[in-house]
Computed example of a mutant assay.
Amino acid sequence: MGGPVASLVDLVLPRTCGGCGVPGPVLCRRCAGLLARPREATPRRVPWGMPPTVAAGAYAGPVRPAVVAFKERGRAELAGPLGAALALAVAVHAVLLPGRPVLLVPVPSSRAGLRARGRDHVRELAVAAAAELRAVGVEAAPARLLARSGRVRDSAGLSVAQRRANLAGTFAARTAAVPPRAVLVVVDDVVTSGATLTAAAGVLARARPDGGTPVLAAVVAATPRPVHRVGAGTLPGRCRDAASGARPDRLSGPRDSD
């Protein structure tokens, strides 16, 4: 939608930033900048088997209301800027594994979540991110390789071990042809404990046990944790800041999402 119709809509329903609420773009330049800092996302207690995960920024400050507005308050127009942030996180993996096709595998929403929201918000992010990556020459596409196969209870207040047990058997792999050199990147909006990404990546890895298809993960944001300083030349994990090559900040947290 554009031209006179868009101008009329803006007059009746003025646009505001989903993060800070100021009039203007759906995500202002300042708030978007907070999602242009890709880094390794590491929970406080890393679940065994968690895939290497990159977050575009921290789930804090105005980033948090922007994600909540997109996910829970019907602001589907935020799929564009949040998808661009997710693409930046995925691009870190693409840089480390150049020349390989990238499949973005959205974590599937529960049936209750789909009914409540009327849409699959993570799939929207995957579609937007893949388009952004293709625009800069990365061979990328969304791929619905996971399905929900069970029901889970609310994870609020659960320990990491309890969250993993709660998610056991929740995901199933869909039958689909995957290019032999493709990189599978599980994508979600927010990571905290890492239980969801671990469960999803484990299902994909078991479905392709030959080891030829790496399974990684990327998210829009992760709840921040204190940075542990390391000596010169030491890099924790496998992920680096794609833009500067600086040591990534660690991100995680026990609230709001898995």
Rank of each mutant, 00 (worst) to 15 (best):
residue 109 S to G: 10
residue 98 P to I: 00
residue 34 L to R: 12
residue 102 V to K: 01
residue 141 A to D: 05
residue 225 R to E: 10
residue 64 R to H: 12
residue 237 G to V: 05
residue 242 A to E: 03
residue 1 M to P: 12
residue 231 G to H: 10
residue 174 R to M: 08
residue 172 A to G: 14
residue 8 L to V: 13
residue 115 R to L: 15
residue 30 R to H: 14
residue 57 G to K: 00
residue 195 A to D: 01
residue 253 G to Q: 04
residue 107 V to W: 00
residue 1 M to Y: 14
residue 227 V to F: 13
residue 93 H to P: 07
residue 129 A to P: 03
residue 218 A to N: 07
residue 135 A to V: 03
residue 5 V to M: 12
residue 45 R to A: 13
residue 244 S to I: 01
residue 119 R to V: 08
residue 37 R to Q: 08
residue 21 G to C: 07
residue 242 A to S: 13
residue 197 L to C: 04
residue 201 A to K: 06
residue 80 G to K: 13
residue 128 A to M: 08
residue 83 G to C: 02
residue 187 V to I: 10
residue 125 L to Y: 05
residue 204 L to S: 12
residue 118 G to Y: 10
residue 35 L to K: 00
residue 13 L to C: 13
residue 206 R to E: 15
residue 151 R to I: 09
residue 208 R to V: 00
residue 145 L to A: 11
residue 201 A to G: 13
residue 109 S to W: 04
residue 147 A to M: 14
residue 235 L to E: 10
residue 103 L to N: 05
residue 130 A to L: 05
residue 35 L to C: 01
residue 6 A to L: 14
residue 63 V to Q: 04
residue 114 L to A: 10
residue 119 R to Y: 02
residue 84 A to N: 09
residue 156 A to P: 04
residue 8 L to W: 09
residue 241 D to V: 12
residue 203 V to A: 06
residue 153 R to G: 15
residue 61 G to R: 04
residue 238 R to Y: 09
residue 68 V to N: 07
residue 33 G to H: 09
residue 189 D to R: 00
residue 214 P to R: 10
residue 173 A to V: 05
residue 120 D to W: 05
residue 223 T to R: 10
residue 170 T to P: 01
residue 110 S to C: 10
residue 24 G to C: 09
residue 142 P to G: 06
residue 178 V to H: 06
residue 223 T to D: 12
residue 188 D to T: 07
residue 200 A to S: 12
residue 22 V to Y: 07
residue 3 G to H: 09
residue 24 G to L: 04
residue 88 L to D: 11
residue 125 L to R: 02
residue 245 G to R: 12
